[in-house]
Design a protein around this nucleic acid. Structure first.
Lengths: 196, 196
DNA sequence: CTCCAAGGTGAATGTATGTTCACTATTGCA
DNA sequence: TGCAATAGTGAACATACATTCACCTTGGAG
């Protein structure tokens, strides 16, 4: 019989602090946030970061997962709004705008879009259905399908297109006006006439 | 009377080699290209890079200048084509596509768009009229003006929009198909209906 | 052909940052 | 309260770069 003292309370607390600090700093500086800075802000020593995350990459991944989860929730809410009577086109547009706006304060999204490039809808079967990526992809795919079927967006619009366009959005340092223009122009390009 | 031995032939040759190597490596790796790699590829020692360029930043700037010059020439050619009877809208679209395509093999353009952000048309008076930036901005502004006056693009389209959209284009590692889609969608967004 | 200033060299330096680990501190069950 | 097992600590290590500089090389004027 093995007794597991398991998960000490201070360890849990520190883990939370680390994730909180990492979220802030990665949002602000992207992948360039340093482990020392994160540790300092979390009020722990660097070694502690490594007790919780084997490598920086893993810590960043956790933060990115969070950011994607935020997107997933937005997307699911948009989808619900469509069921509630909102136009699929409007909801997709609003979602797009919201995600681009997030780029202003969350540079983790740039890193995220780099990782999002990988999972085609096919690969999704491999990811746990509760993962942020799976949820986001599922919701956005559904929303896109609805918008397409109503003719609100070009008939050939694909998920990959949206991911690319979201990843390309002006980030951080860019003036808000620039993001506004980006959204305006790209949304115009997504709507209506399909072919060329 | 001062005699200037000035510009030894080997110095000129090496400078050229350095710029050539820097172009290749910066195109491939962007700002992350290392001075050592550039020196090796140029067949000289690191110290020599610093004899020709005070700091890495200056070397990169020289390379970026080249890349922008390429854009300037494309733009001037497009402008000439309009004078020759080509539609301003078509030419602007073709230019846009060509620049995005360049992003595939020239990561210096990403760095360039970061610098391009600065010069508003007003600041241009400060830059030498023969500089790559000045030429590019002049030609593109003119081309944009023509396209606007013909109604080929939305009436509120500005130079800053184009710079932003070019800078946002999928670069390097992205599959060609992705660049194609980007161009297609964005161009659709740039044309026609102005307001919202 | 000589000579020296312009040019080249590359080991060494400085800095920034990820990662490790021998040691100390804390938690929580018995 | 005593005692492991679990956590935390932070100096030390490893690596990757940009940049410097004391010392050679060499082009080309005289």
């Amino acid at each position: 019989m093995v007794h597991l003292v398991q998960v000490r309370s201070d360890a849990q607390r520190n883990r939370a602090h680390i994730l909180g600090a990492a979220r802030e700093l990665v949002a602000a500086a992207g992948v360039d946030a340093t482990m020392e800075d994160i540790a300092r802000r979390a009020g722990v020593a660097v070694g502690t970061l490594y007790r919780h995350f084997p490598a920086k990459e893993d810590l960043v991944a956790a933060v990115v997962e969070d950011s994607i989860m935020y997107i997933a929730e937005l997307a699911e809410r948009s989808l619900a709004a469509v069921d509630g009577g909102g136009g699929a086109g409007e909801q997709l547009g609003a979602l797009f705008a919201a995600v681009v706006e997030r780029h202003a304060t969350d540079r983790a999204l740039k890193a995220a879009s780099g990782m999002l490039k990988i999972p085609s809808v096919a690969d999704l079967a491999l990811a746990p259905p509760e993962s942020a990526i799976a949820r986001a992809v599922t919701a956005i795919t559904e929303l896109l399908e609805r918008a397409r079927s109503v003719g609100a967006v070009r008939a050939d619009l694909m998920l990959a297109d949206l991911v690319m366009l979201l990843g390309a959005a002006p980030a951080g340092e860019a003036p808000p006006e620039m993001r506004r223009r980006y959204v305006e122009i790209v949304l115009a390009g997504l709507s209506g006439g399909a072919s060329r």
